[in-house]
Every structure is written in C-alpha cells, then in structure tokens.
C-alpha cells in the first residue's frame, strides 16, 4: 500500500510539473497574440489604457462602442476622438481605465463623453455580471493595479485562479483572438464598431430596466464624475437612443441624476427621443446601426460644439 502511495504521489508530481510548464508556455503564447491583436476589444482596450492621447475620449458599453462615430465627431468638432466603449462593460470597468487618460503624458483630454444606460448603476447584478467583467480584466491584472484591486474586490476567487494559471485569464478567448487577426481593417474605426442593417422589432419594445442599485457601481460612477470634473474637463453624460417604449425614470437614472447634480453635470437623455426612435436607425432594439450612429453622432457633435463654445472651451473652428 505504501508503495502505491509513493508511486501515486510521484506520478502526480510529474503531471503537475508538466502541466505547470505547459500552462506557462501556453499562457505566454496567448498573452503575446492577445496583446498584438490588430483589431477587436483587446486592441481598443490596449489603446485606451496605454495610449489614450486623443482630444476627446468616449466611454461606455456596447451602446457607446456602436454609437459614437469618431469620423463624424472629428469632422464637426475638429478634435481627435477615440471611442473606448466596450461590449458588456459598465461604469465599474470605465472607472478603472479612466486614470490612464487622466494621468497621461501631455495635456489632459479636452472633453470626455460618458454614455450610460438606464440601468448603469444596477448592472453588476451578481455572478453573471462579475463573470463578464472578469473575462475582460483578468488578462491585465498582472499589469494594471486598478484592475487587480477591482478583481480582488469583486471576484477574489477568479483573481486567485488567474494568479495560479497563466492560461486561465485567456479562457474562452482563443477564437476571438483568431477572429481579430483575420477580420477586415474597417471593422474598428478608432474604437467605434459600426453595425449594419436592422434586426430590431417592428415596434418599440418594453424593457424592464428597473433593477436595484449596486452600491459598488454607484461608488465607481461618482469616482468617475469626480475625477473628471475636479480636473475641469468638460464631461458629457449621455443616454443614447433605444428603440423601446417610454419608461419611468429607473432607480439607476434617479441615482445617476442625483450624483450628476452634485457635480453640476447635466444628463443628456435621448433614450426615448422621438427624433431618433425610428426602426431604420437601429441594428437591434438597444443599438444604433451605422446610419443611426452617424446621425446621432452629428447631432451630439453639434450640441457639444455649442456647449464648448458657450463655455469657452476652445473648440477649433
């Protein structure tokens, strides 16, 4: 029996050693290809944290990513733009990447656009929300202290797994990495990803956005607003259009307005604005297509220009 134990322990150790090497080598290969992705979320993210040198930076979820077309904004504002929007991201994620823009070398951004959803402060919503967030930030926890702290706060077990295994942070990413190496270059235009056609329902739908507030998200939202306004950077907080029926102010919207009021930042709410609530402008019920995005971007650009001129923020003519 004793021999059996020794033999078992010995072979198990060999397997662990081989697995350790495979994990380190495999993790390094994944990290290399992940960081060098020419397109996709990772590429946009790398720009957002390593080199966010544009005049205006846009933050927000997929609704931001598919809405604010830098070409249109640049044309009307005469400023360089980068869209840091990311699929399924929320204010928790954006609060973590904001310091890269605020602590960059050179001048501060000339303006920041933050696109929020009617449930922005309710989003974290348990395991699923954390799983999505974890998949976004785990590859960066070794390099970015903000992300490591966030992971420690929100999903310490996932952080532990990412510390033990070098492959694990790239879980479920291999196909995306391959895809991002093979897609055409026009997929991502300074962070903006256009959507084509429409799959939206014939009529606006009724969505229930009214979930409970998550205090962690609320805290991060206030952090974001405070960090930007304390540096006197013009901040435009916008709820972009959706093809949905009118709905009463959600708990998240009420809390959002309360926080913004404390910092004298208005909320531009176009969620049910009838100018944009037309099926032909939507890819699906909550995302504008390229046609809707171009029209909305132009509208927002003009409004920002007016606002900046009025407040003498120095928009190029």
């Amino acid at each position: 029996m004793r021999n059996g134990y020794f033999k078992f322990a010995y072979k198990l150790l060999i397997l662990i050693a081989i697995m350790f090497v495979v994990d380190r080598v495999g993790g390094s290969i994944m990290a290399y290809y992940f960081e060098k992705e020419p397109l996709g979320d990772a590429a946009a993210f790398a720009h957002a944290i390593e080199n966010p040198n544009e005049d205006i930076l846009v933050y927000g979820s997929s609704r931001a990513m598919h809405t604010y077309d830098p070409r249109v904004l640049e044309k009307h504002l005469g400023l360089s733009i980068f869209n840091c929007g990311r699929n399924a991201s929320t204010i928790i994620y954006h609060a973590a990447i904001l310091p890269s823009a605020l602590n960059r070398k050179g001048p501060l951004p000339k303006a920041i656009i933050l696109d929020v959803t009617p449930k922005e402060l309710s989003w974290r919503g348990g395991e699923d929300g954390n799983a999505i967030l974890a998949s976004m930030i785990l590859p960066y926890v070794d390099k970015n202290e903000q992300f490591e702290k966030m992971a420690d706060d929100l999903f310490p077990k996932e952080l532990m797994k990412a510390k033990v295994s070098k492959l694990y942070p790239y879980n479920s990413m291999i196909l995306n990495i391959i895809r991002n190496y093979s897609k055409k270059a026009n997929d991502n235009i300074a962070g903006y990803v256009p959507l084509f056609g429409t799959k939206a329902s014939r009529e606006p739908i009724t969505l229930n956005f009214n979930a409970e507030i998550d205090n962690y998200a609320k805290e991060k939202f206030e952090f974001f607003i405070k960090e930007v306004t304390s540096r006197h950077i013009p901040l435009y907080v916008i709820i972009s259009p959706a093809f949905v029926n009118p709905f009463p102010d959600t708990k998240s919207e009420i809390a959002t307005k309360e926080i913004l009021a404390r910092y004298n930042v208005p909320l531009w709410d176009y969620s049910i604005d009838t100018t944009f609530r037309k099926r032909k402008y939507f890819y699906d019920n909550v995302h504008l297509n390229e046609k809707g995005a171009a029209i909305f971007s132009e509208f927002i650009a003009k409004r920002i220009k007016d606002s900046m001129e009025k407040d003498n923020y120095g928009v190029r003519q």
Partner: peptide, 20 residues
Amino acid sequence: RYTGYVMLLTLLLLIGVFNG
C-alpha cells in the same frame, strides 16, 4: 497517456466554462 492528461487539462483551462 500524459499527453492525454495535459490536453484535457488545457482544454479545461482554455475553453471550460467556470461560472458555477
């Protein structure tokens, strides 16, 4: 045999779904 073990463990780490 060990290639088999390592392949399955790598599959778990790379495409396993760990959402509980």
